[in-house]
Amino acid sequence: MSKVIQVGMADYKTAINPGILMTAGLGSCVGVCLWDPVTKIGGLAHVMLPSSEQARKTDNKAKFADTAILALLKEMSGMGANLSRVVAKIAGGAQMFSFPGSSDIMRIGERNAKAVQEVLRQEKIKLIYTDVGGSYGRTIHFWTETGKLSIRTIEHGERIV
């Protein structure tokens, strides 16, 4: 049996084959899965906010798109992953509630997803799968053995990519 490692909101974890990383109930948050196909080292971050720049307290690096991805890459590299090989899959960034005439701040899911994509681009990490947006929650499992990602939803089925 492979071990399932749970990642909570505003947290990240790494694992090595045959570890399975999972995070439950992604709403406006984005799950960022990183994987080195050769060493089979993987990482999963449950990102809550787009940027640490406006935050008053930034010691929890896992909370923000910018700091979480960098910290995760660093940890994976320390475990022996080669960052030039690392690929990414992302899921989440939904808008669970909507209000008429609501401002940008409400579209937090969209902003999270954009920020994650931007940071991946800056770090030259190839984004090979994106499932973001909509107005529904997602639970994801990420297999370090195969790099496969399963995305489970309540009313929009399950997909494995």
Binding site: A55, R56, M96
Partner: peptide
């Protein structure tokens, strides 16, 4: 109507700017 985690994250994210 959805997973509790998804619903809560969408209402508490603003607190993340200040603390944990």
């Amino acid at each position: 109507t959805d997973m509790a985690g998804a619903i809560l994250s969408a209402v508490i994210y603003t607190l993340g700017v200040i603390g944990d």
